[in-house]
Write a protein that binds this DNA or RNA. Structure first.
Length: 749
DNA sequence: CTAACTTGTCATGTC
DNA sequence: CTGACATGACAAGTT
């Protein structure tokens, strides 16, 4: 038994450690300006539930009393397991689950999207992240959604270990590792499943349509169906025509400000980023993609080669660069991200392709990465207000077919930055497909694509559905006071002071004592009828009433705080119940029967609740036999222990409820952090696109001494630390890129 | 009737 | 050492 206890305690300790680990992980908050009170509470342990209750007391289930005490040898273990499973589930984004469920809902032939529908309810329930889903097909669906969920998360890089039994050190380590993967959302994936993505898109769309009240994306149908136009649009044929003559620099400090027609903005003011992938995918309904551009566009998304760590590091590099490079960019583009109709930027862009948009007021500074620093305050709490210059040309992702995606963003090398030869029209005629993608290493398209998918899921799916679900849970939970401030001591408040009944001392303490025993009640039955009715009630009243209130306190802990008063009231009520002495008899506890049998001259209530001094004083007032004194002591002991047991059980319940609430808080925080991360990545992607387009713009306008455009295969733009952009031979750029690539790795070592 | 749940009680340990 | 308290375990009662 001792070993088992130890084992269970260790398990719970591990659980605590796990929570702490999660807390550490989500310390992303420290620079996301977010707060995680629950985590801190868990880690620092201010919760009275934790301080009052030892973890090895955790028994039964989150639902309350779940396991029979006789199985106590296992229930601790299973409780820990259950909690661990929930915590582990935190590591898995649950949005996809919701999406899947929602998808099923909308397949309902009735077409009604009612939250009361079982499937919908299931979806909501699943979205909550809690696994206590009930209802028909729950098991199957749960497994299905779970599976799909894991799948999704694997795609997202946030892979949680399968919920298994024991929590081992390896488990914790694995969770930690997986969390890192999660952080590096989507990184390191070499394969991206089109069909899967398509499914997600469908789900997203369903969520969009259904959950958000048929808020369809206007034009997504027609506009997206113009993939062929995209090619033209992407080529930016208009660029060369607008190119202002040829600058003759080979190592050119591009201080010039490219002023391009505003009308050429690819996405327009109302383009919404999140929809782009969706539309893109819709345009590619299956793996049998339409030939041409879309394939090309998507291809770079499938070539993520960066390891999560690289990505993370590069992201940090990006951030530092962005902070260093102050650039002025029109901040009015918030609309692009937020005020846009659900129009699909990419699709819109495709449809508008013939009029390939070009930035207006875009200086070459803006072409540099640093230029985005001011625009994209990624760590702003309001990421969504991310200012993407309305004039900025958010060109759709173009395939660079780059094999060297390892250039860090920190690299000043813009060589081959998103240079899409096929798409860049005349300016890119010479662009080779082998051009490296400086940004690719930082945030490869595959990852961004995944992020977008996840973003969609979270934005449309989770935010509206799961968040509401969480809210519901919380609200419903609010009905249950988890306030651990309810001091158990309130139960043991001195009741004796209020006891109005100083029970008449039925001085007949004669024969009873002789027959006293633990079963003394046997001899009582005959005597009881002679007892003063008031005495009987007085002696009997307390316990039943008290028990009632204690029971109430279990159901609603908030009532516990007023127990001291209720206790008295209830006690007095017993006197009003006088008419039925038999009832009182029935409600009498064994000790009360014994007390009556022994003709104890005061109530059990006093015996139990009087302070020691008063209690001894009371005893001294009476001439009590040894048997009576023993019984009184036993009554006091048992009475106190009873209250202690009630308090103990209440604490257990409170602890469980607190843990449940904390788990919910953690889930909520995790969802929020993931949402924020997705938003960051999305803005990063937009930035990348912007840089890409600007690169194309700049490079396409460069002319050599002979007025001919530079070949992208031979030259590349390099971003210098001082903000200038240089045109350098590609070989040199590649060397520098490689050098930059090694640095972070060395640093990591 | 059984199983699950509730409650009281005891033993034991801690403070 | 004693009293109060906490809690695991068990048993009896209740649902």
């Amino acid at each position: 038994m001792l070993s088992l206890k130890k084992y269970l305690t260790e398990g719970l300790l591990q659980f605590t450690i796990l929570l702490s680990l999660i807390g550490v992980r989500v310390d992303v908050d420290t620079y996301l300006t977010s707060q995680l009170p629950p985590l801190r509470e868990i880690i620092l342990g201010p919760s009275s539930a934790y301080t009052q209750t030892q973890f090895h007391n955790l028994r039964n289930t989150l639902d309350g009393y779940g396991i029979h005490p006789k199985s106590i040898d296992l229930d601790n273990y299973f409780t820990a397991r259950r909690l661990l499973s929930q915590v582990r589930a935190l590591d898995r984004l649950q949005v996809p689950t919701t999406e899947v469920s929602a998808w099923l809902v909308h397949r309902d032939p009735e077409g009604s999207v009612s939250g009361s529908q079982p499937s919908s309810g299931l979806a909501l329930e699943s979205s909550s992240g809690l696994q206590d889903v009930t209802g028909p097909d729950t098991g199957v669906r749960e497994s299905e959604t779970e599976q799909g969920f894991s799948e999704d998360l694997e795609d997202l890089g946030a892979v949680a270990p399968p919920v298994s039994g024991d929590l081992t050190k390896e488990d914790i380590d694995l969770i930690d590792i997986l969390w890192r993967q999660d952080i590096d959302l989507g990184a390191g994936r070499e394969i991206f499943d089109y069909s899967h993505r398509q499914k997600e898109q469908d789900v997203d769309k369903e969520l969009q349509d259904g959950v958000e009240q048929e808020d369809t994306w206007p034009g997504e149908g027609e506009e997206v169906l113009a993939p062929n136009l995209l090619v033209d649009g992407e080529t930016g044929e208009s660029f060369p025509a607008q190119v202002p003559g040829g600058e003759n620099q080979t190592a050119l400090s591009l201080e010039l400000c490219l002023r391009l027609p505003e009308a050429t903005c690819p996405f327009g003011e109302n383009a919404e980023f999140p929809a782009d992938i969706s539309s893109l995918t819709e345009a590619v309904p299956s793996e049998s993609e339409p030939p041409g551009l879309q394939n090309n566009l998507l291809s770079p998304l499938l070539t993520g080669t960066e390891s999560p760590f690289d990505l993370e590091q590069q992201w940090q590099d990006l951030m530092s660069i962005m902070e260093m490079q102050a650039m002025e960019v029109n901040t009015s583009t918030n609309e692009i991200l937020y005020n846009n109709p659900p129009g699909d930027p990419l699709s819109t862009n495709y449809s508008l392709a013939p009029n390939t948009p070009i930035n207006q007021n875009v200086s070459l500074h803006q072409a540099s990465l640093g230029g985005c620093s001011q625009d994209f305050s990624l760590f702003s709490p309001e990421v969504e207000s991310l200012p993407v210059a309305s004039s900025s040309t958010l060109l759709p992702l173009v395939p660079s077919n780059s094999t060297s995606l390892n250039s860090t963003f920190g690299s000043t090398n813009l060589t081959g930055l998103f240079f899409p030869p096929q798409l860049n029209g005349t300016a890119n005629d010479t662009a080779g497909p082998e051009l490296p993608d400086p940004l690719g290493g930082l945030l490869d398209e595959a990852m961004l694509d995944e992020i977008s998918l996840m973003d969609l899921a979270i934005e449309e799916g989770f935010n509206s559905v799961q968040a509401s679900q969480l809210k519901e849970e919380f609200d419903s939970d609010s009905g249950l006071s988890l306030d651990s401030s309810h001091s158990p001591s309130s139960l043991s408040s001195s009741e004796g002071s209020s006891s109005s009944s100083s029970s008449s001392s039925s001085s007949a303490s004669s024969s009873a004592s002789s027959s006293f025993s633990e079963e003394g009640a046997v001899g009582y039955s005959s005597d009881s009828e002679t007892l003063d009715l008031e005495e009987v009630e007085g002696a009997v009243g307390y316990q039943p009433e008290y028990s009632k209130f204690c029971r109430m306190s279990y159901q609603d802990p908030s009532q516990l705080s007023c127990l001291p008063y209720l206790e008295h009231v209830g006690h007095n009520h017993t006197y009003n119940m006088a008419p039925s002495a038999l009832d009182s008899d029935k409600q009498m506890s064994r000790d009360e029967h014994r007390a009556r049998a022994m003709k104890i001259p005061f109530t059990n209530d006093k015996i139990i609740n009087l302070p020691v001094e008063e209690f001894n004083e009371l005893l001294s007032k009476y001439q009590l036999s040894e048997a009576q004194l023993s019984l009184i002591r036993d009554i006091r002991r048992r009475g106190k222990n009873k209250m202690a047991a009630q308090n103990c059980r209440k604490r257990k319940l409170d602890t469980i409820l607190n843990l449940k609430r904390d788990v919910e808080d953690l889930q909520r925080d995790k969802a929020r952090l993931l949402r924020e991360k997705v938003e960051f990545l999305r803005s990063l992607r937009q930035m990348k696109q912007k840089v890409q387009s600007l690169y194309q713009e700049v490079f396409g306008r460069l002319r050599d001494e002979n007025g001919r455009p530079y070949s992208p295969s031979q030259y590349a733009l390099q971003y210098a630390g001082d903000g200038s952009v240089l045109l350098i031979p590609r070989t040199l750029a590649d060397q520098q890129a490689r050098r930059q690539e090694r640095k972070p790795k060395d640093r990591r070592k």
